[in-house]
Design a protein around this nucleic acid. Structure first.
Lengths: 202, 202, 202, 202
DNA sequence: CATGAATGAGCTTTCATTCAT
DNA sequence: CATGAATGAAAGCTCATTCAT
């Protein structure tokens, strides 16, 4: 037996979180009952409470892991000294690749983002610190004059937010896009926030 | 007008839908119980079932009315022969004014848009026909070469979708923006989809 | 239909409390599940929550009714100006008759009196005001010198408390006592608190 | 000695019973979970089942030890040939001292005495043989004519039962009594069962 | 012997829906 | 038409008990 006890426990915890991700992605919070979750994870209902204090704790931890995973994936290989447009392209490409390979995460994340106001608000807000490279990019661009003078939240909505929205649309709508189109979309979202949009196209 | 809380609901069906809007905006689907709904609407729980076959039917009808109301508000005063950029500005301004005066609708709409995949999918898709003026704008722009060659879904995500996302952020985040900033945001979202973005700034 | 709606409701509330009394008397708090209670009362589990906010509320109300019922029964026909010994005899006789005809109440009361410390403590303490005629008797006797100089709690334990204890023993032990013996017990418990005990016997 | 918390439990069985006594005294049967018990006893939950077949068996054995311990304490130094009143005083004093030094036992005993009828009935009844010195005292007194002609159960309720009741009241009520009062209470409870009560006071 | 993770029955409570009035 | 008391399935959660280690 290669795995020791704590690894087995860790595995079970992950099995539960994985099942939760599945359930959240496919049924939303509506179908998210502990019984269903336990069934999908292949454990008894009571077992869930060995790893999480209650339903809310489970959801909170799932959210935390999802956000962290996304942030890690998006900012991998980033060099903060690089050209802003290059950085931006990298972020977009990383995000896209991640979503393509982890569609459940995208769908689940959207469920969190639209919880009844004030449910996980603080967690969602505090997650922003994980996206510091993006904030830095916006900040730097604004001070250079290469990015429009709008707040980070708004710039996010115009750029990466759009991209995530589109990714979700595609996932749900079964539409598909090729690499050329993807490049165009990234440029388009850059146009939204950049002050010299056309320069990029020529 | 169902969606205006200040008007006395003219009949019970409208009172119920109005109460449902309220609840959905403030509590999401989670806190949406028929008892609460009936109380808020000033009717008995059983009465709800005289106007709607069940909970799902009520939600479906609410969605339908919300989408219709939004579409009407956004496209009022539109002249399909006008300049595309002028049309776009009008749509944005209409949308913004509507959300400012009907925040509950924005919040409720977001709840619908993030229902578990496949719950209201067909309704959401079929709602697109109400947004024909927007599709037309995209179509016309694409054929003129003034709008990027991307599908309507994607263009929507880059333009109006962004705007709605930002509006929601503001509603929830207590951030506030002035008219100048709003104009800038509209231009930014136009930059995302336009092929001659800078022309607008000069 | 003679009974109006509110009477029916009252009846159901009483049916539930009556079933609760039954259950508490026969099974104690251990066997006191809402499901069992509802079954015994002939209603659905959910119905209990139409009349009581939760399990604790139900128990609290049951306790309140039990204590009030006992107090009423014990002090009926009391004349506070009467001879103390006569008053005492009346209280004992009333208590005894009540328990003989309402054994479940005695058994249930004992369950309350031995709840985990601090559960219903305040209620139990506050119930003392209902036993004012008894406190008055103790007080008067003490100031006259005809009752031993001990606190009310202690006098209670020596007199009525003993009687209740004995009644419970008999109920549980199937022992039976006749009227003569009862008279003797009453005198015995009076001896415990009186300063001139023997005077009574001759 | 199991019942003395300050001594390190000498083996696990004793540790478990000691923890059970603690829990029972402080939380009653309600808060008595095997997990809590095991934690308090410093063993694993499964270990409990090595020493007791199940929860009920544990409770039964705890009851048995408690009763035995009390009986031993109450009748220590008794000389069955001594004067009845002297013997009675000794019993009372022993009981009082025991309770003062082992309040948990008093509180736990009360929990047992008010279990749902028929749960521990046979145990409770069979425990009477441990109180033989007391039965003998009653018996002797009755045949001498110095104690009232009432059954042992009833005499118990009037004398020692009262004392136990009062002791519990004091424990719970934070009331306190001094030695003089204690002497008075003992005399009072003797008055209840004696045929020559006043003789004692002069 | 001892552990404690795992189980699953059973608890309290909520709520969509029905139906007698 | 309208009511709201009643229902009972299903939710989140606890806990006595088992068993592989």
């Amino acid at each position: 037996m290669i795995l020791n006890k704590s690894q087995v426990a860790q595995d079970k915890r992950e099995a539960i979180l994985d099942a939760a991700l599945d359930l959240l992605a496919s049924c939303g919070f509506h179908g998210f009952s502990i019984k269903q979750l336990a069934d999908k994870a292949g454990v008894a209902a009571g077992t869930v409470y060995l790893y999480f204090t209650d339903r809310e704790d489970l959801i909170r931890q799932l959210h935390s892991e999802i956000v962290q995973t996304i942030a890690e994936a998006v900012f991998v290989d980033n060099e903060s000294s690089a050209d802003l447009w290059d950085q931006y392209q990298l972020f977009c490409r990383n995000l896209w690749l991640f979503y393509a390979s982890h569609p459940r995460v995208l769908l689940a994340k959207a469920q969190f983002d639209h919880l009844p106001p004030a449910t996980l608000r603080s967690e969602i807000e505090s997650a922003w610190h994980l996206f510091k490279p993006l904030s830095d990019l916006y900040e730097k661009g604004r001070s250079q004059g290469s990015i429009k003078p709008l707040s980070n939240h708004i710039l996010f909505g115009l750029s990466i937010g759009s991209l995530a929205f589109i990714a979700r649309q595609l996932l749900l709508g079964f539409e598909d896009i090729d690499t050329d189109q993807f490049e165009l979309i990234v440029k388009a979202s850059w146009d939204a926030i950049s002050t010299q949009p056309t320069a990029i196209f020529e």
